[in-house]
């Protein structure tokens, strides 16, 4: 039994055939070179919201904020959701250099506390980095829960040079290529912000974090943040990536609790790309009604010259 095909149905049929011809494998003799082209149409942004007391806001609505993307105000979003805490990728960077020796034991205790507090985060989403000599090192990944980590972390000694920026780039590269590409990724840096031997610069570390979409939360181990260049570097790293900076006088337990609370109250918004201009697109999130709300996100993203 034949299926009747009306005259007006020929056009879509012929279009489909043309499409099939256009996408058929290359004939013999042609170089087997396939080029897959894709088109980026959507921007995806992780951010956190806090009230005037710096407490995370867990009841944010899409109408409470607007995104300013390269000067353009975006209010129409394609999606707006709370980020999934169970998909969060957490990496911890321990500054094991000589400059933090006085606070090293306290630093270790804080990290162990943080690792044991991160309930709900799967073990495979947790990793710890430090230095070995003048090189970055991965201390543990996937098995860093307090019971195992307690045995490994004391091997780190507070001595030697400080390849801080190299280790940040190393850890960001690890996070960028590990786990779910859509998962939120954060690097918690315990450091005094002093770097003595890195090949990468502060600019490289910032650039890597913007490209890999990794948020940096910095816990300052200086005795005082006043007049400290290291504190300024840590502050810069945190603000550029949408993370938080914690100054030395703040209590460590309170800091860790605030950090975990905020990570649990993060959001993801997606919207249509407002401009296809290649290069850096600065991004800022601002309130639509309540000016007391504060938003933290990365400072922007790169749109490539040619998307392939």
């Amino acid at each position: 039994m034949s299926i009747p095909v009306g005259r007006r149905h020929y056009w879509p049929l012929s279009s489909l055939l043309l499409f099939c011809v256009g996408t058929s494998p290359t004939v013999a003799g042609d170089p087997a070179k396939l080029i897959y082209r894709s088109n980026v149409t959507e921007v995806r942004l992780n951010f956190s919201a806090a009230d005037q007391n710096n407490h995370g806001v867990a009841t944010l609505q899409a109408s409470d904020f607007a995104v300013v993307d390269s000067d353009v105000v975006v209010r129409n979003f394609q999606s707006f959701t709370r980020s999934d805490w169970t998909k969060l990728e957490i990496a911890i960077l321990i500054d094991a250099s000589e400059s933090v020796t006085p606070r090293f034991s306290q630093e270790m205790a804080d990290i162990l506390h943080l690792v044991s507090s991160a309930e709900g985060v799967p073990p495979e989403n947790l990793s710890i980095f430090s230095f070995e000599g003048s090189r970055p090192a991965l201390l543990c990944a996937g098995d860093c829960r307090a019971s195992q980590a307690a045995g490994r972390l004391p091997e780190v000694r507070a001595h030697g040079l400080t390849p801080l920026f190299d280790t940040i780039v190393f850890a960001e590269d690890y996070l960028a290529h590990h786990g779910d590409a859509r998962a939120e990724k954060t690097l918690i840096v315990f450091s005094d912000g002093v770097d003595s031997v890195s090949q990468d610069s502060l600019g490289d570390a910032l650039d890597a974090s913007v490209r890999s979409e990794v948020q940096l939360d910095c816990i300052d181990l200086n005795k005082s943040a006043y007049g400290s260049q290291g504190a300024a570097i840590l502050r810069n790293l945190a603000s550029a990536t949408g993370g938080r900076y914690f100054s030395p006088p703040e209590g460590t337990t309170g800091v860790l609790n605030a950090l975990l609370e905020e990570l649990r109250a993060n959001y993801i918004v997606t919207y249509r790309l407002p401009s296809r201009a290649p290069g850096f697109h600065a991004v800022r999130i601002l309130p639509t009604h309540n000016l007391k709300l504060q938003f933290r996100s990365r400072i922007g993203y790169y749109y490539p010259n040619q998307v392939q």
Binding site: F65, A66, V68, V73, R75, L286, P287, T288, H289, N290, L291
Partner: peptide, 12 residues
């Protein structure tokens, strides 16, 4: 704005 903190809510 006349100062750096003179922000307008970005309502519709």
């Amino acid at each position: 704005g006349k100062t750096s903190d003179q922000l307008i809510p970005l309502a519709e």
